[in-house]
Each structure stands twice: as structure tokens, then as C-alpha cells.
Write a protein that binds this DNA or RNA. Structure first.
Length: 414
RNA sequence: GUGGCUGUAGCUCAGUUGGUUAGAGCGCCAGGUUGUGGUCCUGGAGGCCGUGGGUUCAAAUCCCAUCAGCCACCCCA
């Protein structure tokens, strides 16, 4: 093993793995477009404030996971840990709120300074959608539907479960949060150290604690549904009704809470038990307060993000790379002819490999290694007669035919 | 950030209680076939045994540190 290692938590995407990533991205993009989501790309870094203000000062991402840098000019920038904040910033920067609602799809790298493990890297990749400017529950339904459709298209829907919860509107959430804090404070001595810290940072998280002592305390905790006001109840009911209408099954999970502060109402996660310690494949929710928090006009939003590495781990069928035609000139005289033929075939749509060096045997071997479909051999003998030799590398059968007739003959092999 | 396991050839892995020149399979290169791949046969190249320090007459093997991977926690895609 070389001592020259990549930075911890980063990986090279070599062709085989890259193909899986591409398959995920391209299929997802195709489905998202059917739902009217247009692709955009925002910068991989933003001013640190963009993330600090949107993610909340107490979130784990902000407190310990951001890759932040100070520039010579004194500016503080951060590699994006997620993309919703960037999209929201773009909406404000470009004055896009004139054209609401907007539907965006994105794909790209994200960066979080976490301890790497299976399904978790420091540079990873996400696809995601954001639907901005639609306060209606229909938007939630559509956003969940497109996510589900993509999982279906990837052939991994059966490996996932949709979990659903509501965090209510700000009024309900605030009320519930207060009730929770007051309850947990009474039982503070029975809580784990982690959960006591959560009490001030993110009390909702205590509900999802794995600590046995915590769980006992949680059993007696107030239930969110008792604190949902009418607006929040109606909204959630509408979302559920829509999912039922579409035949989208889900499991209610009242412990499903989001680490990020800007979420309201709908929270959902497609989870899988095939990702090691990780479970979330595609997760998101509604963030009605986000854009206003950033200083933009009050604009509701809902979206999700999915980890491409995690999706790629589940995807079974990846269409293989197209098979090449190997053009093999033999002798100096054939080189020019081979070059011309190669170019012609490429314009015709074929993947063509024209080796740079080596004898015939070596080139045949290379053609085989790249899993080429056919080899076209051009030697002095053939050229004098205006011919080439075409070898079918699957069957081993070979024929000599006129150069002019080659393209049409090749078409029959594919 | 915390705890545990692991690190030997490009890959997957052997390597005995510390003891000559560290092995295998696959892959790679060459030859058998001067214009014919995939199968087969023969030969070859390729290792600071993750890195640095220590113990010892002697370290891949024992100890410490460090880096990386994996697993769990935290949290998340």
C-alpha cells in the first residue's frame, strides 16, 4: 500500500463506481423532470453565515461538522454540508421569488467533518429536490411521490420503508417543546448525559434516544399530537389523505424528528436496514421558516435529499458501459486509413478504440479486456483490395469485407 | 468527538512459541502462436509486512505513538 493516501473520508470514484453514481443521478434527474423539477447547481461553498443562520447554532452540523475557512480577505466560507441553504440563498440572491412556485433538482458533493464509517464519508454526494413557494399539502405529497418514484426507478423501493411524522407549525412546535422541556426537567436525574445536553440543544431528540433509561422516561412524556393545533392537524391529515389516494404506504413514526431547526409540519424518511448503522436513504421535510430566517420574503418550502453513495449501495442493476469496436491497423500504411475509419464510426455513434501501440496480438488482447464487441483489422493485404477484416469477438467468427460495407455490417452486430 | 477491531504484492488472503532469501490464488508482463483475443502450458516482474519510535543477538510477529479502514455511539444522506 502506498503511503500517499487520500484525505480521510474522501474517495476516488473510479469508472466502475462512477457508473453507479451516474446511473443514480441520471435516473433521478429523469424522473424529477417528469414532475417539473428543473436542475440547478449552486456553489459548493458559501459564506459561513448562510449555514449558521439556517441550520441553527446548536445543530451538530454547525457545531462540529463544518469545513470552514478564513480567507485572506477576512471572509469566512464553508463547504456546503447540505444544499437546501444554498438553494434558498440562490432564491434570494436572484430575486426568484417573483416566479413562485419553483421546483428544483440538484446533484453534487457535500462535506461534513464526521467520523467516517460505512455509508458515511466526509465528502459525499447527494441528489435532492426543493419545492419553493407552495404552502399547500399537495406540495408535500408531490415531493414525497417524486422521491418514491425515483427509488422505484432505481429498483430499490422494496428495500425501503417510508416513515412519516409531523412537527407541526411553529406555534404547535413551540408549545410542545416547552411541555417536553418541562417534563424532562422533572426527570433530569434519570436522563443520560447525552440527553441532558439535548435538553437545551434539541429536546425533541431525546424522544429518539437509544439509552434504556431515557426510553423509560420517554414513555411518560407528553405526546406531540396533544399539542398540535387545528391548523397543524388539518395539514397533516391532508398530507396523509393524499398519500393514501396515491397508494403510497407509510409508517407513522412520532420519534422521527429532524436535527435541523428550520423544519415544520411534514418530516419523512425512506429508511433501509441494509446500510450498516445508517438508515436514512432519502429524507426531508417542510421548512416554511427558512427563507424568512435568511432575510428573504416569507416563502414556504419543502424538499428532500438522498445520499448517492447510500443509494448506490442498494442499486443492483447498473446498465453496463456500451461495447466498443476495436480498430486495429496492421502496418504503417494502414494507420491513416484506420484513423479515418475510427472517426467515421464515432460519428455514426459507435464507441471506438483505436489503440496507440502494440502488435496485433496485444491489441486483440486489449480489445478483449475492454469487452469490445468486434475488432476491425486493417492490414496491407486488405487495404490494397479496399477491404477490412471484421472479427466478432463473442463468436470468434471473422470475415473479410469491403471497407464501404463495414458500417452497415457492424450495425447488424449491435 | 468517544470506544472497539483491523492494516502483509494491484486485489483477496496465508505466514506456527519472535529465528535463514515473507508465500498462495487472481490480476499484470513475456514466450508457446513473425497478422488474431477469450481457454491451456511455461517463465517473469512486483513487498520500507500502513508510518515512526522502542524491546531483543534477532521483529511481519512483542510494546508505544501515529495515519487509514471497518464496527458501535453521537448525529445524519
Amino acid at each position: 500500500m502506498s503511503t500517499l493516501q487520500p484525505v480521510r473520508g474522501t474517495h476516488d470514484l473510479l469508472p466502475e463506481e462512477m457508473r453507479r453514481h451516474r446511473a443514480v443521478i441520471e435516473r433521478a434527474r429523469g424522473i424529477a423532470e417528469r414532475y417539473g423539477f428543473e436542475e440547478i447547481a449552486t456553489p459548493v461553498f458559501e459564506f459561513t453565515d448562510v449555514f449558521k443562520r439556517t441550520l441553527g447554532d446548536t445543530s451538530d452540523i454547525v457545531t462540529k461538522e463544518m469545513y470552514s475557512f478564513s480567507l485572506k480577505e477576512g471572509e469566512e466560507i464553508t463547504l456546503r454540508p447540505e444544499n437546501t441553504a444554498g438553494v434558498a440563498r440562490a432564491l434570494i440572491s436572484n430575486g426568484l421569488h417573483q416566479n413562485l412556485p419553483l421546483k428544483y433538482f440538484y446533484a453534487g458533493p457535500m462535506f461534513r467533518h464526521e467520523r467516517p464509517q460505512k455509508g458515511r464519508q466526509r465528502q459525499f454526494h447527494q441528489i435532492g429536490v426543493e419545492l419553493l413557494g407552495a404552502p399547500q399539502p399537495q406540495a408535500d405529497i408531490e415531493v414525497i411521490a417524486v422521491g418514491r418514484h425515483i427509488l422505484q426507478e432505481l429498483g430499490i423501493l422494496q428495500d425501503t420503508v417510508l416513515e412519516l411524522n409531523t412537527l407541526g407549525d411553529p406555534e404547535s412546535r413551540t408549545a410542545y417543546r416547552a411541555a417536553l422541556v418541562s417534563y424532562f426537567e422533572q426527570h433530569e436525574t434519570s436522563l443520560s448525559e447525552d440527553s441532558r445536553a439535548r435538553l437545551t440543544r434539541n429536546p425533541l431528540r431525546i424522544l429518539d434516544s437509544k439509552d434504556e433509561g431515557d426510553r423509560k422516561v420517554v414513555e411518560g412524556a407528553p405526546a406531540f399530537e396533544d399539542y398540535l393545533n387545528e391548523t397543524s392537524q388539518n395539514f397533516f391529515a391532508e398530507v396523509r389523505r393524499g398519500l393514501d389516494e396515491l397508494g403510497i404506504p407509510y409508517q407513522l413514526n412520532s420519534r422521527l424528528v429532524r436535527g435541523l431547526d428550520y423544519y415544520t409540519h411534514t418530516a419523512f424518511e425512506f429508511t433501509s436496514d441494509r446500510l450498516g448503522a445508517q438508515s436514512a436513504v432519502l429524507a426531508g421535510g417542510r421548512y416554511d421558516g427558512l427563507i424568512e430566517t435568511m432575510g428573504g420574503p416569507a416563502t414556504p418550502g419543502i424538499g428532500w435529499a438522498a445520499g448517492i453513495e447510500r443509494l448506490a449501495m442498494l442499486v443492483q442493476d447498473v446498465s453496463p458501459a456500451p461495447r466498443a469496436v476495436a480498430v486495429i491497423p496492421v502496418g504503417e500504411a494502414a494507420a491513416d486509413q484506420a484513423l479515418k475509419l475510427t472517426q467515421e464510426l464515432r460519428h455514426r455513434g459507435y464507441v471506438v478504440d483505436l489503440g496507440y501501440s502494440g502488435n496485433l496480438k496485444k491489441r486483440m488482447k486489449r480489445a478483449n479486456q475492454m469487452h469490445a464487441r468486434a475488432a476491425v483489422m486493417m492490414g496491407d493485404d486488405e487495404l490494397k483490395a479496399g477491404q477490412v477484416t471484421l472479427r466478432d469477438l463473442d463468436s470468434g467468427e471473422q470475415e473479410t469485407l469491403a471497407l464501404d460495407a463495414l458500417p452497415a455490417r457492424l450495425d447488424t452486430l449491435y
